[in-house]
């Protein structure tokens, strides 16, 4: 199986505090990695390293993804002053063939002309997740994707991730909520 992300002896130190040390892992196409750990253990930092935004203090991380990485993090990257429809245009998702299906599933189909600032936190999260549901990427990285989601949306997300794994996509996520996804676990608490 082709390796999509390969991390070797990763260490990260901030203000002389070691967040994690000598982490090594490979994530192959068609497999998922669940990064676990308490608050402040470096889950987001590790994800940002995989994305190439942050650099490790020591060690190396390589990504062999061909296409743009699909990522949703703590920030939704939505424009609060624009409507849902305008945001979909900005995300280049307005003409996606599966858009209507996910808008209906996530109960956003009646909110197209609503300004994002007027949506609830959960609805904004669902809108941000459309980027994931309609992705065209071989590497998907999700930082706490279930925060603010209702149980129905969580189930849709789990089903979606399992389907993506069958399509040989590589998925790396962090979550405090136990998701029904077959994934290797990297627990930063135990390092």
């Amino acid at each position: 199986m082709k390796t999509i992300v390969k991390a070797t002896n990763l260490s990260y130190k901030i203000n002389e505090k070691k967040l994690f040390q000598n982490i090594s892992f490979d994530v192959d196409a068609g497999s998922a990695l669940h990064i676990k750990g308490g608050n402040g253990t470096g889950k987001t930092t590790l994800l940002r390293m995989i994305l190439g935004i942050s650099k490790p203090t020591r060690g190396s991380i390589e990504s062999f993804a061909y296409k743009d990485v699909c990522f949703t993090g703590h920030k939704n990257a939505l424009k609060q002053y624009l409507t849902v429809e305008d945001n979909l245009i900005l995300l280049s998702l307005n003409t996606h063939i599966n858009l209507d299906k996910y808008l209906t599933d996530l109960d956003l189909h009646n909110s197209l002309d609503v300004t994002v600032a007027n949506l609830s936190f959960g609805q904004q999260k669902k809108l941000a997740l459309l980027r994931v549901f309609l992705n065209d990427s071989d590497l998907i990285i999700l930082d706490e994707p279930c925060v603010g989601l209702d149980s129905n949306s969580q189930q849709i997300l789990c089903f979606f991730i399992n389907e993506e794994l069958k399509k040989d996509k590589c998925i790396i996520f962090s979550s405090h909520i136990q998701l029904d996804i077959e994934a290797n676990i990297l627990n930063l608490d135990k390092l």
Binding site: I53, V69, H74, A77, K79
Partner: peptide
């Protein structure tokens, strides 16, 4: 600033 605060710059930085 706006793009930085809402995470859009992060998304732009990830693009090829």
């Amino acid at each position: 600033l706006e793009d930085y605060n809402d995470g859009s710059l992060e998304q732009l930085a990830l693009k090829n």
